[in-house]
Amino acid sequence: MKRDNLFLSTIYTLTLATILAWSTTNWAGEDLSAWILPSVPVPGDNPQSEAKIRLGKQLVFDTRLSKNDSIACAHCHVPSAGGGGLTPRAFGHGGELGRWAPSWINAAYYTSQFWDGRAASLEEQTGALPGHMGPITAPGEMAGNIDAIVKRLNAIPGYRKQFRAVFNEPATRENIAKAIASFERTLIARNAPFQKYVKGNKNALSKKAQRGFELFRGKAQCAICHTPPLLTDNRFHNIGVPQVGPLQKDLGRFEVTHKDEDKGAFKTPSLYNSATFSFQTHDGAFATLDELIAHYNRGGDPSNPNQSSLVQPLKLTTREMSDLKSFLESLTDPSLNQISRPNLP
């Protein structure tokens, strides 16, 4: 009997040691550096400077870049809502639009802009550059006349002085775009608890969020598209989101590429600060992370003929869905939700 007890005790000790070793490797000793957000890519013709960033921040909060001085960029990209829209679809001079205003957080890492990727850079997506329709000049959005905006900014002493200090010339379409893009390149979620965790602070995440991280890159299959370190593969997928809002049909990326495989496909967004979004997905079809996780858990919409084969039922338990949500909440950088309107010239 003593021999049996000794044998069982030895087996128990070895098993416990194995579990503890596995736990240490996965929770404490694992190299998670691949998940650390990298330096932001900056184009050679638009280097960052503090003065340019300050100017760009003023411009995104200034309604004078729109028709009738009525809409600023920050009216749709609301800091307190994670840089996204407060309504399921954005509103502009054309009334309700067809898509939710996506977050500007970590947009600097995207290789293309907008849900359908029709703009190649942050500068292009402003709508200030010739030949590139975007929020500032789009008739249904801010509906600004860019030439009139340039003239107006140069007539404001404070702006005129700032543009000359930053660019050595008055305001131009190009410099407006560059200043706004420079500000947007600072909106990086480096202070999110998850970023602290992957940099070595193992107390930055709760055990619940840590379990959610394991699910994120395992059973929940999130990391197939939300790849490290950016949590986006910068590609486009149809995930079976229901079509809601004023549009009868939104073909997404197909309207840009005209490839059948892109029908209903939209860009994989970064998930940083998504727990503070007012709505989720390209058309605001889901109001909460719980709804979004449930959508993925049931395999999206199998009746959608264009849904990606990557979307499959996950069979997550109630606890697992709750853990996954806790991980997504750990991606919130609270400082980015506290950006306030600066003084304007």
Rank of each mutant, 00 (worst) to 15 (best):
D4L: 15
D4N: 15
F7W: 13
F7R: 15
Y12K: 04
T15M: 15
L16G: 11
I19F: 14
A21L: 11
W22K: 12
T25P: 01
N26F: 14
W27A: 09
E30F: 04
A34G: 05
A34I: 11
S39A: 14
G44Q: 11
D45V: 08
G56N: 10
G56K: 13
K57Q: 09
L59S: 09
T63F: 04
T63V: 04
S66R: 06
S66F: 07
D69P: 10
D69T: 12
D69F: 05
S70F: 03
I71E: 11
A72V: 10
C73N: 12
A74Y: 13
V78K: 07
S80M: 11
G82M: 00
G85D: 00
T87K: 12
P88R: 03
R89C: 13
H93K: 00
H93L: 07
G94V: 05
G98A: 08
A101R: 11
P102M: 08
P102Y: 03
W104C: 00
N106F: 00
A107W: 05
Y109L: 00
Q113I: 12
F114D: 11
D116C: 10
A119S: 13
S121V: 07
E124V: 02
A138M: 14
M142W: 10
A143R: 07
N145D: 01
N145Y: 00
A148M: 15
I149M: 11
I149E: 07
N154F: 00
N154Q: 07
I156H: 05
P157A: 03
P157C: 07
Y159E: 13
R160S: 02
K161M: 06
V166Q: 09
V166H: 10
A171K: 13
K178I: 02
I180Q: 05
I180E: 07
A181C: 06
I188E: 13
I188H: 02
A192D: 05
A192K: 08
V198H: 01
S206W: 01
K207I: 04
K207Y: 03
R211C: 07
G212N: 02
F213Q: 08
E214R: 04
F216Y: 03
R217T: 03
G218I: 00
A220E: 02
A220W: 08
H226C: 01
T227H: 09
P228E: 01
R235Y: 06
R235P: 09
P242G: 06
V244A: 09
P246E: 13
G252S: 08
R253F: 12
F254H: 04
T257R: 05
T257Q: 02
H258R: 02
K259I: 06
D262Q: 10
D262E: 12
K263R: 09
G264P: 07
A265M: 00
A265P: 06
A265F: 03
L271V: 09
L271T: 02
Y272E: 07
A275G: 11
D283C: 11
G284C: 13
A285P: 09
A287E: 13
T288H: 12
T288N: 14
E291V: 03
L292F: 04
Y296S: 04
R298C: 08
S303C: 09
Q307A: 07
S309M: 14
S309W: 15
L316I: 08
T317L: 07
R319A: 02
R319Q: 03
M321V: 14
K325R: 12
F327C: 10
P334H: 04
S340R: 02
N343F: 01
